[in-house]
Amino acid sequence: MSMINGNEESYRPALAAVTSVLQENARIRTLGITFRLDAERKSFSFNPGQFVMITLPGIGEAPFSMCSSPKEKGHFELSIRNLGNVTDGMFRLRKGDVVGVRGPYGHGYPVQEMKGRDIVLVAGGIGFPPLASVVEHVIANRADYGKVWVLYGVKDYDDVIYRQRMKRWSKAKDLEVRMALETPCSKWKGCVGVVTKLFNKLKIDAGNTVGLSCGPPIMLKFVTLGFEKLGIRDGDIFISLERLMQCGIGKCGHCNIGNKYVCTDGPVFRYTDIKNMAEEVW
């Protein structure tokens, strides 16, 4: 992992261009972004679960986790839901438009530590992107990892993202993708309910399995309990948290939870490290 801007300039972003736009659904888009300068293209690399700060000059900055495979040099993808000023602005971007990029920042999922083990990934709603990056990484290095289950929970049928990706992932060896829809829909014949319902049919070797999750706070709470019930050790559970972030480098204070900063100690946390402040977490 290496950073685009060094310590001497804490805030100056690198310039990068939008190279692809995919409308996942009415409210979510995936943008492909490539650095303009050769040197930056060569030096940028990240771990799944890390994030970048995207700058739209005049409007502001916001953090986004990469959802693409880390092996693509100098290029990454972000999925965006239009919720506020920066994401509204990103929704108006077209191919060729330029944005500022700072990062990558934070700790991602421990893909080295996970080698040789089975993985259960649980994504809730717009929490999918960092876990998608893990899946892409696993598929690109399939032999390094054991069995994989991707469990995706979403509220409405129209909220679903990564439809094409999930089809592609299902073709990989020993990799299952399962989805749970909270609101019943005639187009959906599969599981109806919250994502933890998918745990019922899960048969895993708990001692050799890691549990990864990302999603709304309340979902994280129940998924973590679900992981524990399945027998996954607390030290093998990794959760990606979200807070308001501004500087990305642990100085502005906004993202603190207890004595931890989501931008530098996280966004991915090992459950044992945050268990004692669970009430502040979710």
Partner: peptide, 25 residues
């Protein structure tokens, strides 16, 4: 106390000439 926000500021005459201001929060 040191917590701060990074705020984008520009004038109405030239809204795309932006200064990013570090303000205490």
């Amino acid at each position: 106390c040191y917590c701060f926000s990074l705020v984008h500021d520009s004038g109405i005459a030239d809204p795309e000439h932006v200064k990013v201001i570090r303000e205490l929060d």
